[in-house]
Design a protein around this nucleic acid. Structure first.
Length: 215
DNA sequence: ATTTAGATCCTCT
DNA sequence: GAGGATCTAAATG
């Protein structure tokens, strides 16, 4: 019997998702990421893990909200153009890191932003990184893309990391039934014209770890 | 409940 | 030089 009350790591919940998982239509991958387990095991640091509960799909060069919009290929978004199953990490607003999962074959610049997770392991370490005390509930620690990165200790050092085989992986977690999946427009992309209202944000209904604007 | 301002720096024009 | 796939606290209705 596993004792979860002491935050014992459950990082061994199955192997990382195979690369083929990421080499599928991006909206399908986005939906399927809900319920999966994000695991970070930095060398010499405590492992952390949590269940993904909110994501946003960014669908390639046609998507005016994506960093790859219009085919702008730069040093920053280079990883988006690479093979599937890698992490695209960028820094924004002078403060926050955001982590994405790259989908589709090399040359196709699509990715999924991880917006929120419900921490399951390493919760004490996440509180430390967030600068919060014991009173902070787990569901607040990785709510919002910037907070998620901070709680998990993800920064640009993880840019390009192979999610199939590195310190940063995604594993099979809990199956989220279709009735609990909500779709909504993406956050903070007012500049994206016709793409502003695309329902490419996926989240788990009634999940307190989901960021501010619920569906 | 909703709005506002401020922190703060990398990236691209 | 401008603006951004953000977050929080504080002010306001």
């Amino acid at each position: 019997m596993v004792d979860r009350t002491m935050e014992s790591p459950t990082v061994t919940e199955g192997p990382p998702l195979p690369r083929s998982f990421y080499d599928r239509p991006t909206l399908q991958v986005a939906r399927d990421l809900l319920g999966c387990l994000l695991v970070h095991e930095p060398p010499g640091d405590a492992p952390t893990a949590g269940m993904i509960v909110e994501v946003e799909a960014y669908c390639g060069e046609r998507d005016l909200a994506a960093h790859s919009a219009g085919g702008r290929r730069t040093a920053r978004n280079e990883v988006m153009y690479g093979p599937p199953g890698h992490a695209y990490v960028y820094f924004t607003y002078g403060m926050h890191h955001c982590v994405n999962v790259v989908t589709r074959a090399a040359g196709v610049a699509e990715a999924i932003l991880l917006r929120a997770a419900l921490p399951t392991d390493g919760i004490a370490r996440m509180r430390e990184r967030r600068g919060l005390d014991e009173s902070a509930p787990a569901h607040r620690l990785a709510r919002g893309p910037g907070n998620l990165c901070r709680a998990f200790g993800i920064d640009r050092g993880a840019n390009g990391a192979d999610l199939v085989e590195s310190a940063l992986t995604i594993r099979r977690g809990r199956r989220v039934p279709p009735a609990l999946v909500r779709r909504a427009p993406r956050i903070g992309i007012d500049y994206a014209g016709a793409y502003v209202s695309r329902p490419w944000r996926f989240l788990v209904a009634d999940e307190p770890a989901v960021s501010a604007r619920r569906a």
